[in-house]
Amino acid sequence: MNKQNITGLFLDIGGVLLTDGWNRIARKKAAEYFKLDHDVMEDRHHITVETFELGKITLEEYLRRVVFVDHQNFEIQDFKEFIFAQSTGNFEMLSLIAALKKEHNLKIVIVSNESRELNEYRIKKFGLTDLADCFISSSFVRLRKPDTDMFKLALDISQVPAKQIIYIDDQLMFVHLAENFGINTIHHTDYQSTKAKLGSFGLCVINDSYNGSR
């Protein structure tokens, strides 16, 4: 490949730019903190999560189906704040992507499965509108990976040829799905290996710095 041919990056959020928003670790932590039956909560979550991440129900509706089916001695707002507090930034990755965007004039497209309120919170909290050109978020577009229409939509909206894109995700299944479109991919496991792989495509930076919220 011509090392100067990459003009766009497709990026997942959770596990790449930030911690996962509401994964099994966070749910287990919530069950322990609020003294809930973890197994029951997990069963309800898995029944509801697709509808939730497609933006068809609100966070409050999700919590009423998963947590507040029974009376609780805490409020919905308490649980919401707990969920939001689980998000932290991968500031090395945020800094790297910001620098690459500036130095190589890249188009940055977020392709992510996230519920609406959590996605909006994370976009604002970590200044992702300064980083990304557009957001193909499941709750915005009513599609959800592994539905391959997510990638079709991202390609249509970005108007960047597949061969000029690198898709970065920590989920290997989604990496393989993107490859079916002729998109270059990186399976993200850590900052150093991803930075090195980006460098192999000719995407290197002299100085990476990111000024998003800490």
Rank of each mutant, 00 (worst) to 15 (best):
N5E: 13
G8C: 12
F10T: 04
D12F: 02
G14F: 11
L18I: 09
L18E: 09
L18C: 09
R24T: 10
R24C: 08
I25L: 07
R27S: 09
A30K: 04
Y33G: 01
D37V: 11
H38Y: 15
D43A: 13
D43Q: 15
H45A: 03
F52D: 05
F52I: 08
E53Q: 05
G55C: 05
K56F: 04
L59Y: 03
E60S: 12
Y62K: 05
Y62T: 07
L63I: 07
L63K: 05
V67N: 05
V69E: 14
V69F: 00
H71W: 09
Q77H: 04
Q77C: 00
I83R: 02
F84K: 08
A85L: 03
Q86T: 10
Q86F: 01
N90K: 14
E103D: 12
H104N: 06
N105Q: 12
K107M: 08
K107V: 10
V109E: 02
I110R: 00
S112R: 02
N113F: 04
E114V: 09
S115K: 01
S115N: 11
R116I: 09
L118T: 08
N119R: 00
R122W: 13
I123Y: 02
K124V: 05
F126W: 08
L128E: 01
D130N: 15
L131V: 14
F135R: 06
F135I: 09
S137W: 01
S139W: 05
F140G: 04
R142I: 08
R142Y: 02
R144L: 06
P146N: 11
T148F: 07
A154K: 10
D156Q: 15
Q159D: 15
D169C: 03
D169L: 00
D169P: 07
Q171A: 06
Q171Y: 11
L172D: 14
L172Y: 13
M173S: 06
F174Q: 13
F174D: 09
F174W: 06
E179I: 04
E179Q: 15
F181M: 01
F181P: 00
I183W: 09
I183M: 07
I186V: 12
H187R: 02
H188M: 04
D190E: 14
D190C: 14
Q192M: 11
S193N: 12
T194D: 04
G199N: 10
G202D: 09
Y210K: 04
G212Y: 08
G212M: 07
S213L: 08
R214Q: 11
